[in-house]
């Protein structure tokens, strides 16, 4: 599968990445190479195989649906790039 500039732009949008125009052709080539490499999987018959969801065959553990932590705004906000009182702050944007 060959990836076009448009597909690069779409993947970048989905991944929330700003990609410079100058990098798009390079990325198209690199992503094409990776997708070309993984395409060999199509030769494998998996019609009677279920997708593997857990390597340890574990089932989800249940726990009581109760509050176990909280009321720690200082610990939670300690690394915030910006905050206003006990809230994360984001830059003002023009919508």
């Amino acid at each position: 599968m060959s990836i076009t500039r448009e597909t690069v732009e779409q993947a970048a949008r989905l991944a929330r990445l700003t990609v410079a125009d100058a990098d798009k052709d390079r990325l198209a080539g690199e992503l094409s190479a990776i997708l070309g490499f993984v395409e060999q999987l199509n030769a494998i018959d998996t019609s009677d195989v279920e997708p593997l969801t857990s390597v340890v065959g574990a089932t989800a553990r249940m726990r009581k649906d109760a509050v176990t932590a909280g009321d720690e705004p200082e610990r939670i906000l300690a690394n915030a790039p910006d905050r206003v009182t006990d809230f994360y702050a984001v830059p003002k944007v023009v919508e």
Binding site: Q10, A11, A12, L14, L17, L31
Partner: peptide, 12 residues
Amino acid sequence: QRRIMIGAYVLS
């Protein structure tokens, strides 16, 4: 960046 773009693409 390459890997998360590939990831976003194969999950799209």
